[in-house]
Computed example of a mutant assay.
Amino acid sequence: MKSSKIFTSAAIGALALGMSAAALADNWRFAHEEFEGDVQDVFALAFKDHIEANSDNTVQVFRFGELGESDDILEQAQAGILEFVNQSPGFSGAWLPAAQIFFVPYLLPTDQETVLEFFDSSVAINEMFPELYAEHNLELLKMYPEGEMVVTADEPVTSPEEFSGKRIRVMTNPLLSETYNAFGATPTPLPWGEVYGGLQTGLIDGQENPIFWIESGGLYEVSPNLIFTGHGWFTTAAMANKDFFDGLSADEQQLIRDAADTAYAQTMEHISGLADEALEKILAASDEVTVTRLTEEQIDSFRARADQVEAAYLDMTGDNGAMLLEQFKADLEAVQ
């Protein structure tokens, strides 16, 4: 979902309308990276509903593509054009290297109950990350998981050797490129808007995303071999422009925090069983799809390469990354 830097006149008009409305009333703008009905949309709408049910404020939600791609909406939030934004740390690596910690493979477990307990209780997520985002004029409201990452490819893959030579699309995230280098593939950064066509034409041989997004975006139609490697979860972050947030009254700040808590709870309920439902839809829609779930022995061949990715993370982030990683591991140990 990388920026194209080009906005349609409709998108600019939508922003202008929102800004003029904001002058007359408290109309807040919230942009996210996904389509209608997807996980980030569920979060944004639950957030909107809470704000509007408990105040006179309104929230205008913008979905993927309406105001550009992920980099675009992040820049708009930092500049104060948007009050709220939802962006995955996968797109934050260039300006917040420590956020790449979510792309150290096999760091997070695949068990959903454990993952949710970790996000609820983690000191790294709930205390350390807000300070890091604040340095970039962003008030971190919630970090939350969307689903286990699944790789799709032009053929089934069960080992790093079988990944050799395969061009796997990655987000604009240096550590994610390190991961697929370690896995034996050729990481290929590509904007989200070009992924379907890239798979269709053979520009790329595969990509990774949560299974609900593979279903929602129809990626299985052009990349039908699903590979469950167990290497991580897709994580995202809901944020506010910090200048905007700091300028609010204490009551309005609490309203926003409560809305984020409510949206988080509803979204975590939404993702329960979502992966299984999405896979069922995919299998019902196509008889060309294959599903490969790696055995523990096969996973070990990938996990053995995770140390070099962790080392790359530490090289990129220095002492701050080391402290965050240490706390991350302690938080994980506490819930496992």
Results as ranks from 00 to 15, higher is better:
Gly247Lys: 06
Val291Gln: 01
Ala306Ile: 09
Asp246Glu: 12
Asp251Ile: 04
Glu296Lys: 08
Gln200Asn: 14
Thr229Glu: 04
Trp213Pro: 01
Gln200Asp: 15
Asp276Pro: 08
Glu215Arg: 11
Gln253Met: 13
Asp287Arg: 03
Tyr196Ser: 04
Tyr220Pro: 10
Leu294Val: 05
Leu226His: 02
Gln308Met: 15
Val289Glu: 03
Trp233Cys: 07
Gly218Met: 03
Tyr264Ser: 00
Glu221Arg: 05
Gly197Asp: 15
Asp246Ala: 13
Ala263Val: 05
Ala240Phe: 10
Thr267Cys: 07
Pro224Arg: 02
Glu269Pro: 04
Ser272Thr: 15
Ala275Glu: 11
Tyr196Asp: 06
Arg303Gly: 10
Phe245Trp: 07
Glu269Thr: 14
Leu226Asp: 02
Gly206Leu: 01
Tyr220Gln: 09
Ala311Asp: 10
Asp205Ser: 04
Thr290Ile: 02
Leu203Glu: 13
Val309Leu: 08
Lys281Arg: 15
Ala311Val: 10
Leu283Gln: 12
Ser272Ala: 14
Glu252Trp: 06
Asp243Lys: 09
Thr235Tyr: 08
Gly232Lys: 00
Glu208Gln: 12
Asp251Thr: 09
Thr267His: 06
Met268Phe: 10
Thr229Leu: 06
Phe244Trp: 08
Asp251Glu: 13
Leu294Gly: 04
Lys242Asp: 07
Gly232Asn: 02
Ala265Val: 09
Gln298Glu: 15
